[in-house]
C-alpha cells in the first residue's frame, strides 16, 4: 500500500533555452504544478551526462526528468538528439537494473509551453506516488548492516584510518 503522505522527489534537468524558460513562464502565469521537483538548469539537454542521472538516483531521487528543445530546435543543433540516443539505452539499462520506466522521463517542451511543464510534472508525480519510494541510499545502508556483524578483536574498525605519511 503506497503511503498517502509520501511525496516523491524528482530531479529535473531543464534546458536553459526551452523547458527552463517554460517552467518560469508556468510560474509567472501562476499555473500550479506539484512542488516535488528540484530543477537544475543546464545549457542544453545534450549536456546531461548519464552519470548525473545515476548520481541523482543513487542520492535518493525517486524520478529523473529531462526537458529539452523539440527536435530541430536545439540551439546547439544536435544536443537533444544526443540526449535522446543516450536516453534510449540508459532507459533499457535502468530497466535491467530494476528501475521502473516511469521513473526516468525525457520531454520536449518549448519556451512557450508553460502548460506542458505543469501537465508533465503533475503526471509524473502521480505515477511515482503509485510506485512508492525508490530510496536507494536506504536500501544500501540496510544491506550494509551485515558489515557490522564481525566484531572479533583483530578486525580493523570499519572507518577512520589516517593518511599514509610520506617518508
Amino acid at each position: 500500500m503506497p503511503d498517502k503522505k509520501y511525496e516523491p522527489k524528482i530531479v529535473a534537468f531543464f534546458c536553459n533555452w526551452c523547458t527552463y524558460t517554460a517552467a518560469d513562464l508556468a510560474g509567472v502565469s501562476r499555473l500550479k504544478y506539484a512542488p516535488n521537483v528540484k530543477v537544475i538548469r543546464i545549457m542544453c539537454s545534450g549536456r546531461v551526462d548519464p552519470q548525473f542521472i545515476l548520481q541523482a538516483f543513487a542520492s535518493g531521487a525517486d524520478g529523473v526528468l529531462i526537458g529539452g528543445c523539440h527536435p530541430g530546435d536545439c540551439h546547439y543543433s544536435e544536443g537533444n538528439y544526443k540526449m535522446l540516443r543516450r536516453f534510449r539505452l540508459l532507459k533499457r539499462m535502468l530497466h535491467t537494473l530494476g528501475i521502473d520506466d516511469e521513473r526516468f522521463r525525457l520531454e520536449w517542451i518549448s519556451a512557450s509551453e508553460g502548460e506542458k511543464v505543469k501537465i508533465v510534472i503533475n503526471d509524473m508525480v502521480e505515477k511515482l506516488k503509485v510506485l512508492g519510494p525508490l530510496s536507494i541510499p536506504k536500501q544500501i545502508s540496510v544491506l550494509d548492516e551485515e558489515l557490522r556483524e564481525i566484531t572479533e578483536e583483530h578486525a580493523e574498525p570499519l572507518t577512520g584510518r589516517e593518511e599514509l605519511s610520506h617518508v
Binding site: G46, D49, P50, Q51, I53, L54, Q55, P71, Y81, K82, L84, R85, R86, R88, L89, L90, R92, M93
Partner: peptide, 28 residues
Amino acid sequence: VRDQGAKMLSSLCSNISENDEAGIDGVL
C-alpha cells in the same frame, strides 16, 4: 570519471547516426 559504464554509454550513444526513436533503437 566516476562511473565507467555511464561514461562509455554516453560516448557511444552520442555517435549513433540516427535521430528518431525507431532508428536509434535499431542501432542499439
